[in-house]
């Protein structure tokens, strides 16, 4: 947790500052962020997320009118503009102070905030996020290169747009069927599937995809069946026993390797887990037909090469290689 403590001694009754004091710093510059997210917040510009359908008033508008307009339009900050030039902002705080101190009927120009922090429409969204972290404001006006007011950004605008973009990106990543990697002149393909804990609804999805792929490649049906068995059992293990995990299928010209990796809780006795009929599955999982104690034995039986490593600290990693 980071503290913005410099001015807090005399401002610690101020609600905004208090919130900031307790808030975690937005993790925007984390060096280990996934590339796709970093690319996203640098690729997206402020103009992509801002609201450009602006309501503005001029400096002669009364604080009362602004208050009514803010309520009617459900906005929390009103830009005061002269033509396309931004001259100030009246925030909800300014309105409350006006009501409190009895000057609500007076004109905006005498009470608006005019020392403004603004964003430029060409700045990356990462800038805007940093601004929300750095300043106690809930919105930033956006100017274009000609210093004209073109929009306003709230953290809600950023959240909405970022989520939309993240969904689109993830969707794209999931649709991309693996990627080609050149290894020693041989092309192979890797596909990775995320498997969630207790997600019986989608259990079998990864295996189905793997099977389809092998079928498309016209592989021997007996080998396809073995690969289907290995991947399905490993997938179900992730659903039933692990806190979710990943299935990785590596398609090579002469083999398929299926790997299952999870982050826990780990298998207490690998030897027992490899014994037919031994199962730790509970009643309701058995009632679905799982937990026969044949999962790992089935995988080992159909594999040409099989390895399993499990630790209660780091989870389980199973590799099954089937020669085609």
């Amino acid at each position: 947790m980071k503290f913005k403590s410099k001015k807090l001694t005399h401002l610690n009754n101020h609600p905004v500052m208090c919130i900031i004091m307790n808030m975690q710093k937005i993790p925007i510059n984390t060096y280990n962020s996934p590339t796709v997210i970093l690319e996203l917040i640098y690729r997206l510009k402020v103009k992509d997320v801002m609201c450009s359908n602006l309501i503005t008033v001029n400096r002669r508008t009364s604080m009362r009118e602004i208050q009514k307009l803010m309520r009617k339009e459900s906005i929390t900050g009103m830009p005061i503009a002269e033509g396309k030039r931004l001259v100030g902002i009246v925030s909800m705080d300014d309105i409350i102070t006006a009501l409190d101190e009895g000057y609500i009927e007076e004109e905006a120009q005498d009470h608006m905030s005019s020392k403004l922090i603004v964003l430029e429409d060409d700045m990356p969204v990462s800038f805007a996020i940093t601004y929300f972290d750095r300043y106690p404001f809930h919105r930033f006006p956006v100017l274009n290169r000609k210093k004209e007011l073109v929009g306003i950004v709230t953290s809600r605008d950023i959240t909405t747009r970022l989520l939309m973009e993240i969904n689109r990106e993830i969707d794209r990543i999931e649709r991309v069927t693996g990627y080609d990697k050149q290894t020693g002149g041989e092309t192979h393909q890797v596909r990775t599937f995320t498997v969630l804990k207790h997600d019986f609804e989608n259990a079998g999805g990864a295996s189905t995809e793997i099977k389809k792929r092998l079928k498309k490649d016209n592989r021997d049906p007996r080998l396809i069946r073995r690969a289907a068995i290995a991947s399905y059992e490993l997938e179900i293990n992730l659903v039933v026993h692990a806190n979710g995990g990943e299935i990785k299928a590596t398609f090579e010209t002469d083999s398929i390797t299926i790997e299952a990796k999870d982050t826990g809780p780990g298998i207490p006795s690998v030897e027992q887990a490899l014994t037919e009929g031994y199962s730790t599955a509970n009643e309701w999982i058995r009632s679905l037909g799982f937990g026969a104690g044949m999962g790992l034995p089935n995988v080992r039986r159909v594999s040409d090469e099989f390895s399993i490593e499990s630790s209660l600290e780091t989870g389980t990693h199973v590799i099954s290689k089937i020669n085609l």
Partner: peptide, 30 residues
Amino acid sequence: LLSDVMGNAPEDSVLITIQGHKNSIAVASL
């Protein structure tokens, strides 16, 4: 037991079971 089916059931066969849920289809299909 779906793992039992998975490991032992022959191809082009019919599964006789009481497991009336989606996962049985996944196994049969695979």
